[in-house]
């Protein structure tokens, strides 16, 4: 099976739920296992929340999510044109957050890396952030 889609939406918090429900609907034809479905939804929620909260801290910008299915491989790209990350390696460390006062846990990237097979983050200060995630989706056991 081959399929792809792209959505573009405003960086407002309601869209965290919107984006994870879109990805869930998109992969439904693969008949994913409950566990894989929830992993993908969580990873998307984390990445989109990061764009909304960190990428555009004081303004509403655009977030793009592209997803592609090739056989059972799911490839997701989430991009924003926000403030960017100056030290990506540091940002990927567990418990690292630049917003501890908002009770952010700094575990978003760690969860994404745990739930997805491959993760790549590319970012440039004042230009934006792109996160690419790949996961092979297993079938729901019958």
């Amino acid at each position: 099976m081959k399929n792809k889609m792209t959505i573009k939406f405003d960086s407002v918090s309601q869209n965290e739920c919107f984006a994870r429900n879109v990805i869930a609907s998109f992969i439904l034809p693969l008949n994913p296992s409950v566990s894989d479905l929830s992993d993908v939804k969580t990873a998307v929620s984390e990445a989109v929340t990061n764009s909304i909260v960190h990428g555009y801290p004081d303004c509403v910008g655009e977030v793009t999510m592209t997803a592609e299915i090739c056989d059972r491989d799911l490839h997701i790209i989430i991009t924003d044109s926000g403030i960017g990350i100056d030290d990506v390696d540091k940002a990927l460390e567990p418990f690292f957050t630049t917003k501890p006062d908002d009770e952010r846990s700094g575990m978003g990237f760690t969860i994404i890396k745990t739930f997805m097979d491959e993760v790549k983050v590319v970012s440039k200060v004042n230009s934006g952030t792109k996160i690419e995630m790949i996961k092979t989706i297993s079938k729901q056991a019958v």
Partner: peptide
């Protein structure tokens, strides 16, 4: 029905 890392921060707080 759903929780992401936000929940960790909420619980730690």
């Amino acid at each position: 029905t759903f929780m992401d890392s936000t929940g960790i921060g909420v619980l730690l707080g």
